[in-house]
């Protein structure tokens, strides 16, 4: 395999594997208000998240920001919890609102600090690390899109065949997400 393929696969695995559950939870919360017909917005939100975490990977790689592992591990479930709470508020339930792009990019900055530890591992033998960034980020982006596609597929089935309503799905999934995020916050409490 080539180095590009390996780094692409590691990015993809990073998000789709079971150990990427915290990022998956964030994606569930981020897209809980959408359906297939909002595909343009879904693509935008997922990409805004990628832009956010890529920015911090770049900043951390240049040494502009330093990463405090335990704090990052704690902040990631905080972003998940906050997104779940936004979903419960009326303003957060409008699929046409642009605020969600902002949330995705802003919280993506924090998730990027979490990705950085793995990213640094991949840059072995790649003097400055830049040639590992593109395949790794592409792998993550594609993994994210796959997860979101599966989520939309599941909810489309629930909406059409089980008469589930968007609002009910949103409350249900945001509840799960907030619950797990809360437990992760307790588990990763750094002080």
């Amino acid at each position: 395999m080539s180095r590009f393929e390996i780094n692409f696969m590691l990015g993809f695995d990073h998000i789709t594997a079971w150990e990427g559950l915290d990022h998956i939870l964030f994606l569930i919360a981020l897209t809980a208000i959408y359906q297939f017909k909002h595909w343009g917005r879904v693509l935008g939100v997922v990409t805004a998240f990628t832009v956010g975490h890529t920015v911090t990977i770049i900043l951390a790689n240049t040494g502009a920001v330093s990463v405090n592992g335990p704090i990052v591990e704690f902040l990631i479930p905080v972003t998940i919890m906050l997104t779940g709470i936004v979903n419960l508020m009326k303003v957060g339930q409008d699929p046409r609102s642009n605020g969600r792009f902002f949330i995705a990019a802003l919280f993506g900055l924090i998730h990027g600090l979490g990705f950085f530890r793995s990213f640094r591992m991949l840059t072995v033998g790649d003097s400055d690390g830049w040639s590992s960034l593109l395949p790794f980020t592409l792998g993550i982006e594609l993994g994210q899109l796959l997860i979101v596609f599966i989520l939309l597929l599941i909810t489309a089935i629930l909406f059409n065949f089980m008469r589930l309503k968007q609002r009910e799905w949103n409350l249900f999934s945001s509840g799960i997400v907030c619950g797990v995020a809360g437990l992760l916050m307790i588990e990763t409490w750094p002080w």
Binding site: W18, E19, G20, L21, D22, H23, E73, I76, G114, G175, I176, V177, C178, G179, V180, G182, L183, L184, E187, T188
Partner: peptide
């Protein structure tokens, strides 16, 4: 469901 879910969850 969250409680059930999180019993599988470890730190990232």
């Amino acid at each position: 469901c969250a409680t059930l879910f999180s019993s599988f969850t470890a730190k990232h």
